[in-house]
Design a protein around this nucleic acid. Structure first.
Lengths: 259, 259
DNA sequence: ACCTGAACACCGTTCAAGT
DNA sequence: ACCTGAACACCGTTCAAGT
């Protein structure tokens, strides 16, 4: 009771669809006070803090300080740190620009994936973001909607479009997440390869044969190139499955099927 | 100096290749004391704690308690909580069974991906695991080696094999990560869909058209099926690119090219 | 030389006491 | 009715004082 900051959402799990639904309702109900605190001011401050001082600085107390209040005051607007993080996650997703290129679904999907990754890497984010605590936030749903639209227009069934959208998000989020937390990369990725040679030396000589063949390029590969390759695999796979299931594939330009 | 638990690895970033190399060297140097503490006992205790009490219970103090010591004592064997997490991550990867099916690279890759996911979902893990803090640990390198081998035998160049391996890991890790943190799923995923209908009602009626078409199946889709679909897309994409680049594709059974 | 109790500098969160 | 100082119950990490 006391814990629910914004109404009677009792103990809904932050990030769940019910939580987002309740939050939207409560936010409409709310009357913006004088010059006081608000959820959006808190989110803005939190994102600034994140950008300027990194993930480790993102504490409830830190956000409060930036707003010249006490942490206790924030708990009138957010019920927990987890809520704050879910809100930040969706907020960041809002920076993803959704544009249609008119060059067919493959070009659109490719652009969308690169744009998602750009935004996810554009600032530090707490570990749980990029997962799906934001999954049902308004901005994230816009993204999901755009992806579903794209894959529907490509000729997929709703189920295929849904599965493909989830797969796309999983891949892009995974790639961004891993790159974000990538460790030991020097300015030119040099540090990484250096230590790697030493590392291989320490391993049993009769194993790790493939690693000795392709390990160098595996370690040194520029993240952008690897991601572009991953996108190509994904698009090729989606197109291949469209052909296999005898559904409409896209010739050269986008033709909207009468769905 | 004082901080480096296991030798002169000074301030290497936990998870970096140098850190793993240094750690392996130091571990060999070390003489196992009487019946005392050891890194592996610490890891075992940490993993037990994780399995029994979940991510939130994984504290240095909690691990110490389980070993009937003080947290200060653990710092003789690990330099920080981050080190502990990197070690746990690689330890868990060690549970991945690497088997060749003799039914060609596609079957092998498919089995490997499902096995990776199984292990990643088999127990709670801290957020940063499944990213690449474990990237250079011995068990993780065995996994990478197996994947590289697979894709090399399929006929890829070392560079293609490397890129494809990274893509595979990113996708599987992303899928597992998102599913792990999936929020609001009831016993039968019911809760999820329930709240979703209410959520859609709250959204502007003139937008989110695709979401209204495919949203239900998007939300309710069983994670296993979605993952299987994602694997199919990935394999199809890899095969497609192999054909496109004129490199050897796999007919029906595995034929080792003379790489 | 090794170990660790006790302390330090933080956290997220709560709530009684203020206005 | 709203706000918040101060406290609670934790953290990770350190180090002086013990053995």
């Amino acid at each position: 009771m006391t814990r629910a900051a914004l109404s009677g959402n009792e103990s809904l799990e932050p990030g769940s669809s019910q939580w987002w639904a309740e939050r939207a309702a409560a936010e409409n109900r709310r009357r913006p006070r004088d010059g006081g605190l608000s959820t959006s001011r808190i989110i803005t401050a939190a994102v600034e803090l994140l950008r300027e001082e990194g993930v480790e600085a993102l504490t409830v107390r830190g956000v409060a300080e930036r707003l010249h209040t006490s942490s206790a005051s924030l708990y009138r607007h957010i019920a927990s740190r987890d809520e704050l993080i879910a809100l930040i996650a969706d907020h960041v997703m809002g920076e993803i620009r959704l544009v249609r290129t008119d060059r067919g679904w493959r070009a659109d999907a490719e652009a969308l994936m690169h744009e998602m990754r750009r935004v996810m890497l554009s600032q530090p984010l707490p570990p749980s973001v990029g997962r799906n605590t934001a999954g049902y936030g308004p901005n994230t749903l816009r993204l999901v909607d755009a992806a579903l639209e794209l894959f529907l227009e490509a000729g997929n069934t709703p189920e295929q479009a849904a599965f493909t959208t989830t797969t796309m998000i999983q891949f892009v989020a995974g790639a961004a997440d891993i790159q974000r937390s990538a460790v030991g990369r020097g300015p030119h990725g040099a540090t990484r390869s250096d230590g790697f040679a030493r590392l291989l030396d320490g391993l049993p000589a009769d194993r790790y044969a493939a690693l000795r063949t392709a390990g160098a390029v595996y370690v040194a590969a520029p993240a952008d190139e690897v991601f572009a390759h991953g996108v190509a695999i994904f698009l090729e796979g989606v197109a291949g499955r469209l052909r296999a299931s005898g559904l409409a594939d896209e010739p050269e330009r986008g033709i909207r099927p009468s769905t």
